[in-house]
């Protein structure tokens, strides 16, 4: 059974933003394990541009919370080397869009050493990075790009959509003996300087807990249509589902939460029930997540489908700056409703 509830599991009334949930996870793990340290640009006194490390410097000091120069290649490699020698680094790449200046250290080194060493060397680290658009930051600061990381072997890839999962996945990522790419959407962080998003605040238990890497969550059950998505688009899909219900369409929503490993069973079980599939993604369309999820069904049994699959992703263009243009390509609730109706037609 894939129904691994998120917020529903929690009975606490305490609510945190996603950013605060991440920080709490890191802080609790750092108290438990002295080999953990945090490194990146502006993770110290600033507390992370997206508040992912707020307050950690005050608590753990500059020996464990390290501001780096703008030298991503050097500090990504530093993280790998330190992990090889038994430490457990958490390294922040401020925007995922910056992977281009340091990708060799990521995909050719941190991701491959375990395999190349025949399993003799482990690289336990967390690479956390901000993704996503919706606030007119233009083509170089608004991408998701998780498809690239999930495509390349040797990295686990997790993408929390809410505070509960943000804490549990961070703890799981820190405890994992592999490189884990932890991709948080700026729109779910609960930042005071972005449009208020009700989904960025949610119940989070105080005690440490793990959300298992590789398990999707069914965040809404339904019988007519399966919507597979992740991250910020989960919330757009939930909003869309409200509207679809009014139009007599009962949709089931799967929050993938992990891309590597991918919970294929969750997708297949749901599609076996609904017979219809819409994949929604804030990453680019071609050669990406939407195609991969479609292939999961096509390879298993295309007869599960009563209608052709529909994909809603960023069309293969750079993310535009102007708000009217950007919102024409983001997977908004309105666009999800329209896509869902096409699948049901």
């Amino acid at each position: 059974m894939v129904l691994t509830g998120t917020q529903s599991e929690s009975i606490t009334a305490r609510k945190l933003t996603t950013a605060k949930a991440m920080v709490e996870a890191i802080s609790q793990e750092m108290e438990r394990d002295p080999s953990i340290f945090v490194m990146g640009e502006d993770v110290g006194s600033y507390g992370g541009i997206f508040s992912s490390t707020a307050g950690l410097l005050e608590k753990f000091g500059p020996q464990r919370i390290l501001d780096t120069p703008i030298s991503e290649t050097a500090f990504m490699g530093l993280a790998t080397g330190a992990a090889v020698e038994g430490m457990r680094p958490i390294v922040e790449l401020m925007f995922v869009d910056f992977f281009g200046v340091c990708m060799d250290q990521i995909y050719n080194h941190m991701a491959k050493i375990h395999y190349e060493s025949g399993g003799n060397v482990k690289v336990p680290l967390v690479l956390m990075t901000a993704v996503g658009g919706g606030y007119s930051d233009g083509a170089q600061h608004s991408q998701c790009l998780w498809g690239i990381f999930a495509h390349l072997p040797g990295m686990k890839v997790v993408v929390p959509s809410n505070p509960y999962d943000a804490k549990g996945l961070m703890i799981s990522a820190i405890r994992d003996d592999n490189p884990v790419i932890y991709m948080f959407h700026k729109g779910v962080m609960g930042l005071p300087w972005m449009a208020k998003n009700p989904h960025s605040l949610g119940p989070v238990p105080e005690k440490p807990y793990e959300v298992p890497i590789g398990r999707a969550a069914i965040v809404r059950t339904g019988n007519d249509l399966t919507i597979v998505t992740l991250s910020m688009a989960v919330h757009h899909a939930l909003d869309a589902a409200e509207e679809l219900t009014k139009q007599g369409i009962d949709s089931e929503i799967i929050d993938l939460r992990s891309l590597v490993p991918l919970d294929r069973e969750a997708v297949l079980e749901s599609v076996a029930k609904t017979g219809r599939l819409l994949v929604v993604d804030e990453d680019y369309q071609s050669f990406g997540l939407t195609g991969e999820i479609t292939a999961v069904v096509a390879e298993k049994d295309p007869r599960l489908l009563k209608a052709p699959v529909s994909r809603l992703a960023i069309p293969d263009i750079p993310i535009p700056y102007s708000r009217t243009l950007e919102y024409a390509v983001l997977p908004t609730a309105e666009r999800i409703v329209a896509a869902a109706k096409r699948v049901m037609a």
């Binding site: 080397g81 090889v84 020698e85 430490m87 680094p89 250290q105 060397v121």
Partner: peptide, 25 residues
């Protein structure tokens, strides 16, 4: 504690991390 890289100069950064761990340990 031996490693190597097939990508030119990209073995330098990980040496920093190894040294960092030695220092911290």
């Amino acid at each position: 504690h031996f490693s190597c890289s097939g990508i030119v100069a990209e073995g330098y950064p990980s040496a920093l991390g190894v040294a960092f761990a030695f220092q911290r340990q």
